[in-house]
Design a protein around this nucleic acid. Structure first.
Lengths: 408, 408
DNA sequence: GCGAGTTCGTTCGATTGACGAAGAAATACC
DNA sequence: GGTATTTCTTCGTCAATCGAACGAACTCGC
């Protein structure tokens, strides 16, 4: 019974906000573009474009960066985005570690700090640790508060769209009385955005990785947990209750082991990090007293270890069951595999593609590329920072005024 | 590498278009609402609201419908939508039939006509048949061309977002040289919108059926083919290549029969109409010389026939595998089952829910309602008409000017 | 029954932002 | 070196929204 999107109404000021947001996005995307070119593409009048660009320049968001090539007349003055005018903070609360990055407006990491920590059962300690690390990053670069746009936080739990600071009581029961968003907001006095880790990995790939091409992307996080992040029409899709992309508990083997969720043969029990390392211990033997790690598995596979390859083959086969369903159901333009194990690249992609081919329509397959991430282990923390960037590029009032940061 | 939605720029006229679109939507949704109430909700000034309402009244889209109850002062004049000011045409090209409906702007069917036809292999004949039926509907109600907003067409094939008139060469090879959109546009000289049948079933449910509540809905069409339609943020989601929702070829039984698509144990080979009637023939015996139909199965189940119930139980179990994955992956607010067989209601829902419970996270299940459609067999044709309505409510210039239709 | 206070809707001048035409500056082409 | 072209700015015009003020219609309390 609903019809159009509930867009907000517009008055004169809203009109300016909308147009200037559009220009800001275009300048950010194009990296350098002249006023004339903007006017042609947006179909805004040259005078309006000039006025808006002047606004944005005033705010320290864009600047002139010299002349472009002539098209048969006066040379255009190129406008560029001030990538380093502001900073973004990205926090990743992982299963067993906390990572913090400080990035510029182009996703480049200025500082990072990381600490091992058992996040799952210790909300207070984790948050305290995160606070220290953030402070460390801010101090390291002597970044004034004024130049920080906001903070993104990746959490290892689905978040409900209606209460983005609350963790799922089923996944992180110890966190039931904590509101992450609120806590960071009061601690650091800046805008805070919270989302699920896989969703932010997806956002990261969409902005900085393999997703440059389109606006429909699926990211699959292969780690302790298995989760997918969906980018639909350029935005993170969370589903009605925030649990979209929770593919870790899709049953893929009816004879598989019992999972904590109560079901049998869940994807995570077969290809989660724990399952992989256990299987590695069986096939590759113990390495030292603690047994092989995922890293050992990756290195083994690269070195040509038959057991490691066998494990990854099996992983691809199981994963293909879920990916096949995903392809048929969502038909994304690209699927990106992330997480440490994905660094084996083709060794995982080959068996995965073979498995998918047995399960997906050839039409869907033809339209979808399946690749591994090239962003490295900071992808999710950077994705958290990107959430802030995405919001600010849409609503430029999120950028602090009176910029005192560097404007290079 | 993309950031914000590619919204169009706004000038003064665009501002008016946006605001008046918003008002039109609100009036349509609320059915009756006063200017003062609109102003409060939209935060537009009372004078602006009056001006826009006058515009819409001029265009014959809304009208005064008497006074409302006082809130302690002068009684408000309620504005209502002119549901019958214009007509919409909806065409369904099914696997074996062509259905045409003529509806008003509230989805009520004014006339309908239907004919059996082997659509699959005969594009020319099918289109000719559709043309006749459309003409029949228009003549029956003496609807002047002027008052028809446009035509929606449901096709039994995925359509690529880039070329919405072209059928998939793999699903409907005989249609490879036909552009359905173009054909109807030149034949009837009105705006034409084409989409996949399951997608339009979903739209129908979203507007007129069980989806009233939210904006995330999944519709599953259970017929000769099995397909899902996804409504995401209030819009049909087609995926990167237009094949989103093609769940019919998800393998659910590795020992199942070979499917035309080359895979084994596809959902459609197990619960498609053909599979159901064949199984019915085995268990229930032949009825007459042609064997039992889906209708016989429904009636049998209702009458308490054990074999029919057994078939539907099995169907629910298989379907649950796909629905479980869908729940974990997309987490829609509601899943609606459509198609003739869905009319058995709880008899199908019970085994389905049981099957899903073994495959989906309880969190996802808790947030999602699973129901059967109540819209009947015209749902998809009406959904096609609704596609036109949805477009016109967003862009009121699609409504013809000089309305000569009835304004009741 | 009557006046005070509210609410609804309209009118009108002010404000704001985009547009268009005209002009100045800078460059390519002949 | 002159002409045409392109870029960007300036300035007057126009359109849409807003806010304040007003008249109309109604409720409530006395």
């Amino acid at each position: 019974m609903r019809a159009g999107t509930a867009v907000l109404t517009v008055d004169a000021a809203g009109m300016r906000a909308q147009n200037s947001g559009l220009l800001l996005n275009m300048i950010w995307r194009e990296r350098q573009i002249s006023r004339a070119e903007i006017a042609r593409r947006t179909e805004l009048s040259p005078s309006t474009v000039s006025a808006i660009v002047a606004d944005l320049e005033q705010a320290g968001l864009v600047r002139s960066i010299g002349a472009g090539v002539s098209r048969g007349g006066r040379r255009p003055t190129l406008i560029g985005f001030c990538d380093e005018a502001f900073s973004l903070v990205g926090v990743e609360l992982g299963a067993s570690h906390v990572t913090v990055v400080l990035t510029d407006l182009r996703g480049r990491v200025r500082t990072q700090s990381k600490a091992s920590h058992a996040v799952r059962g210790d909300p207070e300690g984790s948050l305290q640790k995160a606070k220290e690390l953030v402070q460390e990053c801010l101090d390291a670069e002597r970044v004034p508060r004024r130049s920080v746009v906001g903070m993104g936080v990746a959490v290892p739990s689905p978040v409900h769209p209606a209460s983005p600071g609350k963790m799922s009581p089923l996944i992180l029961p110890a966190w039931k009385n904590v509101d992450v968003k609120e806590w960071f907001e009061t601690t650091f006095d800046m805008p805070v955005f919270v989302d699920n880790d896989a969703n932010l990995g997806a956002l990261s790939e969409c902005f900085w990785g393999a997703g440059s091409a389109g606006e429909d992307l699926t990211y699959i996080k292969l780690a302790t947990g298995i989760g997918a992040g969906l980018i639909i029409h350029g935005d993170v899709y969370r589903g009605a209750g925030g649990t979209a992309g929770e593919i870790g508990h899709i049953p893929v083997d009816s004879n598989g082991p019992l999972c904590v969720c109560g079901l049998r043969g869940c994807l995570v029990t077969l290809i989660g990090s724990t399952a992989l390392t256990e299987r590695a211990r069986e096939l590759m033997g113990t390495r030292g007293r603690k047994g092989p790690t995922v890293r050992d598995l990756v290195e083994g596979a690269r070195a040509g270890d038959a057991a490691a390859k066998q494990i990854i083959d099996g992983m691809g086969a199981y994963l293909g069951i879920a990916v096949g369903g995903l392809l048929n159901l969502l038909n994304p333009a690209i699927i990106v595999l992330g997480g440490e194990i994905s660094s084996v690249g083709e060794m995982l992609l080959d068996p995965l593609r073979a498995s998918v081919r047995q399960r997906a329509l050839s039409v869907s397959m033809a339209e979808t590329r399946i690749v591994t991430s090239t962003l490295g282990e900071r992808a999710i923390a950077v994705g958290a920072a990107t959430l802030v960037l995405q919001a600010a590029l849409r609503d430029r009032t999120l950028f602090p005024t009176q910029n005192v940061g560097r404007t290079a």
